[in-house]
């Protein structure tokens, strides 16, 4: 369980950027020009791409939400006020309360989950002026609540451009068919970079390859420690039961049968304790969520990868137990034990 905890916690922290973008980049991709902006010809070319349903000129920022181990971030898209409704419709999202941000003003609409996680209401404020750790500068008023199956916020592009004194426009591209087909059609272009899920995962893996190696080393060290600890426990265990095993042996039960019996017994105990451990950790996380972090928390959930770790760890421990038993339970030794000479 320690290994599972270490790997899942480390992954949880390292994957916060992925989590911030994963849902969004399953719905659309973002084009980031290599120069200040894409010229009209290129834009027209993009619009004529049959895989492109719609293009929105955007600027972007991020907003902080609380996580269990560190802060999480979600994207804020600044776009033309005239395009906001269209964008929401295309994402099957809608404004459920409040109003859209006004042009050239510091308004913000956020999805329900962000509002809940931050524990704020419409009319409340976010930004660096409220919380030093925020990325959004100044103070933005929450003007509306969006119902959507992805997490994001929308602000006014005019205001962003005025405030940032920049025309560094990016383009949010929605697919007419699937996101995979869109990404494939956008792949070959040297004038701009595409921010899509596979690029994000690739850059994440490159960025955290050292961390993954570190996790591997920690896992190996933990496995070796576990094997040593298991060996010590086995020694104590065998010493406390050696007379019993000697008795089995003297009654004609083979050493092999005794070893198999002990391995079976230990496997059942291990299985029960692993199951109990997983259940207890789930309850513990649930407790954290319900009692300590009511205002928004992301559960550290163990992925299949981490659960699969149980198999090699369990197997290596069982194999080491088998060899410890094989070297400890020998016929000659058991005879000495039963005679009281050992």
């Amino acid at each position: 369980m320690t290994i599972l905890l270490v790997t899942s916690m480390t992954r949880y922290i390292s994957e916060s950027e992925l989590r911030a973008w994963e849902d969004s980049l399953n719905k659309f991709s973002i084009i980031e020009p290599n120069v200040s902006s894409i010229n009209n010809n290129e834009l027209a070319q993009l619009r004529s791409n049959e895989q492109v349903k719609e293009i929105f000129a955007i600027n972007e920022s991020i907003i902080k939400i609380p996580g269990i181990l560190n802060s999480e971030y979600r994207p804020i898209f600044a776009m033309q006020n005239s395009e906001m409704n269209k964008f929401l419709n295309l994402l099957d999202s809608k404004l459920v309360s409040g109003k859209l941000p006004k042009s050239n003003e510091r308004g913000l609409i956020l999805t329900e989950d962000i509002i809940n996680y931050k524990g704020i209401e419409i009319g409340g404020y976010v930004g660096k002026a409220i919380d030093e750790e925020e990325f959004l500068w100044g103070r933005f008023e929450i003007e509306g609540k969006i119902k959507s199956d992805i997490s994001f916020g929308i602000a006014s592009l005019d205001y962003f451009q005025r405030k940032l004194s920049s025309t560094n426009t990016k383009y949010l591209v929605l697919p007419s068919n699937s996101i995979e087909q869109l990404n494939k059609s956008l792949e070959k272009n040297t004038n701009y970079n595409i921010r899509n899920l596979s690029n994000l995962i690739q850059s994440h893996n490159e960025k955290y390859s050292n961390l993954n190696r570190l996790i591997l080393v920690i896992t190996i060290v933990l496995i070796i420690s576990l094997i040593i600890i298991t060996g010590l426990f086995m020694k104590i265990y065998l010493n406390s039961r050696n007379r019993e095993f000697a008795l089995y042996f003297s009654n004609g039960i083979s050493v092999k049968s005794i070893i198999l019996f002990v391995v079976k017994e230990i496997s059942i105990m291990a299985l029960l304790s692993i199951t109990l451990g997983i259940l207890l950790s789930k309850f513990f996380l649930l407790f954290l969520k319900e009692i300590l972090f009511q205002e928004g928390v992301f559960l550290v959930s163990l992925s299949l990868d981490e659960y699969i770790l149980i198999v090699p760890i369990g197997l290596s421990i069982l194999v080491s137990i088998y060899y410890i038993l094989k070297s400890s339970l020998k016929a000659e030794k058991l005879e000495k034990i039963i005679l009281g000479d050992y």
Binding site: L247, S250, N251, G252, I253, I338
Partner: peptide, 15 residues
Amino acid sequence: RRDTISLMFQNFPLI
């Protein structure tokens, strides 16, 4: 031993 003979030891170990 299993088929033919048993020995009750002086310290009579039980399980």
